[in-house]
Simulated scan of single mutants.
Amino acid sequence: MFEKFCRFRHIMSLGLAGHSDELFRRKSFPAGARVLDIGFGFGDTTRLIAAQVAPNGEAVGVDGAQNFTDLATREAAEAGLNNASFFSADAQGDDLRGPYDYAFSRFGTMFFYLPGVALRNIRRALAPGGELTMIVWRKREDNPWVHEAERRVKQIVPVVPLEETDQVHCGPGPFSMSGPDMVSDMLRSAGYEHIAFARYDTDICIGRNLDEAVEFALALGPAGEVIRLAGEAGERLRGQVIAALRETLSPYQRADGIWAGSSTWFVTARNPAR
Score class of each variant (00 low, 15 high):
E3H: 14
F5K: 05
C6N: 12
C6L: 15
M12S: 11
S13C: 04
L14T: 14
L16Q: 10
H19E: 05
L23R: 14
F24P: 02
F29G: 05
P30N: 07
R34F: 04
R34S: 08
L36I: 11
L36T: 02
I38C: 05
G41N: 03
D44I: 14
T45G: 00
R47Q: 14
A54G: 09
N56W: 03
G57F: 07
G61K: 09
G61S: 10
G61E: 11
D63I: 01
G64A: 13
G64M: 03
Q66Y: 01
F68P: 07
T69I: 13
D70Q: 13
T73K: 05
G80C: 09
N82R: 13
N83M: 11
A89Y: 00
A91Y: 01
G93R: 02
D94E: 02
D95H: 11
D95F: 09
G98H: 08
D101V: 05
Y102M: 05
Y102R: 08
R106F: 02
F107L: 10
G108S: 07
G108D: 05
T109C: 14
F111W: 03
V117S: 08
L119Y: 07
N121T: 05
I122Y: 06
R123A: 15
R123Y: 01
A125Y: 08
L126M: 08
A127M: 11
A127I: 07
G129A: 13
E131R: 15
T133P: 00
V136A: 07
R138K: 15
R138A: 04
K139C: 04
D142F: 04
H147Y: 15
Q155E: 15
V160P: 05
L162G: 02
E163R: 02
E164N: 12
T165Y: 03
Q167C: 03
V168Y: 09
G173M: 10
S176Y: 01
S178R: 04
S178G: 08
G179Q: 06
D181S: 13
M182V: 13
S184Q: 14
M186S: 03
R188E: 14
G191N: 05
E193G: 11
H194W: 01
A198I: 08
R199Q: 14
T202N: 11
D203E: 15
I204A: 03
C205Y: 00
C205K: 12
C205A: 11
R208W: 06
L210S: 11
A217P: 02
R228S: 11
L229Y: 08
A230V: 10
A230S: 15
G234N: 07
R236P: 02
L237H: 04
R238H: 13
G239W: 12
G239I: 04
V241A: 11
R246L: 07
A255L: 10
A255V: 10
A255Q: 14
W259F: 14
F266S: 07
V267I: 15
